[in-house]
Design a protein around this nucleic acid. Structure first.
Lengths: 240, 240
DNA sequence: AGCTCTATGTCGTGC
DNA sequence: GCACGACGTAGAGCT
């Protein structure tokens, strides 16, 4: 399934890579290369040793020395390989004008393998879990709060949780499972304003930001807008 | 500089990887593995063939069949390798509670190489370029607009460009080099509100969103908030 | 270290 | 297919 070449000629590397891709395999090429990307932005990668990963879905990743993100990448286009002048792996970005071109002077190592699909990966602990948690125990948000709907539509977007507080006042809740930034405060304010407009002119609408924490500036923005903050962590059961 | 092993024993792979890392090299391991991540969220990768890239800065990337983003990753911690029970490459996330553990049943291919630094990469066509462009020719935003400051601080965050229009009215400009979403409108509204509060109570403050395009909902939100939109593309010279 | 914001963000979801 | 918002966002720039 997995096979490799050490120091292949460029012609051999070209055949190796295109055969592997035709077989639905992922290909890793390591060697000195330069690259350019042209699309929404422009990117130039000066000569240096990098790894190119060509996935079966025709995603190209060019990785250098550091960082989680590739130095250059392309996806959603058609990939071509050509060994006429160096080994050129190129991706024309399909509908977008994005184009990536990687040119290897030499290939030190080539590996092809049959990678597992993304559905072998499961994730938990996301905002969806936080929502489940507060719906199961609405008092976490505020004693007496009762949810009426989730993802309620407003002209300004969907409110995460919509309900009423102990006094029967309408409440819009915005959930964040990370420390909340100013954008979360203005997002909530947008919803509250839209709800006030949508309901009767004299309708009172409260807004509560639910998150494990807020930044200082965010706390101030909430206060200025008359919005509340309720501390709830996504995981632990000792909320509020 | 670049060297490889084909189908090494796990002990050999361990020695290969730790030696290479000690020499400041990047290491690629391909083979059947499973992995778990525990931190801000949880992630489980069922058994399957993947590529692990261990960069010299101790970033770990686990890539499967598709997508630009790794199936799992870790950075900012200490990486350890151990071949006692499978080949385990683990990263304790340092200050964060993030921990990634990858366990290989076998290693089909191992490659070590000396990757080029990120400073070999240059980028252009970003929002910074758009800012330069409108500062060089402020009439692109609106005839008569005159910039007074960039990144002006307000209690709600930094205004991209701050100036006055042809009538002398204060203007806050928010730049986007992509099609603008509702979040851009509320970001601009935050700044305008903060400026009105900061300046005299009777101060008039206008807000202009500068972007190549806006979505329909964004256009409506701008109108409701009394904010303007000015179409300027990051690249082409035919603005306004 | 903390905070704010950009990004070729990418990715999922709902229309 | 477009739009919208979350993301273990990552990464840069500034205080």
């Amino acid at each position: 399934m997995t096979h490799s070449l050490a120091d292949p000629t460029l012609a051999d590397a070209e055949a190796f890579a295109s055969d592997a891709n035709a077989d639905g395999l992922a290909v890793s090429l390591v060697g000195p290369c330069e690259a350019t990307f042209s699309g929404r932005a422009h990117r130039d990668l000066a000569a240096g040793v990098r790894q190119l990963l060509w996935k079966p879905d025709d995603t190209l990743l060019v990785h250098g020395a550091g960082g989680r993100d590739p130095d250059a990448w392309a996806s959603g286009g058609t990939v071509t390989v050509d060994a006429n002048d160096g080994l050129v792996v190129a991706c024309d970005g399909g509908s977008a004008a994005d184009a990536l071109r990687v040119r290897f002077d030499a290939v030190h190592a080539a590996t092809a393998f049959d990678p597992v699909d993304a559905d072998a990966t499961t994730v938990s602990g996301t905002e969806a879990d936080l929502k489940e948690r507060v719906l199961a125990d609405p008092d976490l948000i505020e004693p007496g709060f009762r949810p009426l709907a989730t993802e309620r539509e407003t002209p300004a977007g969907r409110v995460d949780v919509y309900g009423r507080d102990a006094d029967g006042t309408v409440v819009a809740v915005e959930l964040k499972n990370v420390r909340a930034s100013p954008s979360a405060a203005s997002q909530l304010e947008r919803y509250v304003t839209a709800l006030r407009r949508d309901l009767h002119a004299d309708a009172e609408v409260r807004g509560i930001l639910v998150a494990p924490a807020v930044t200082e500036k965010t706390r101030r923005l909430l206060a200025e807008s008359g919005l509340a903050f309720s501390q709830v962590s996504p995981a632990d059961a000792a909320g509020r």
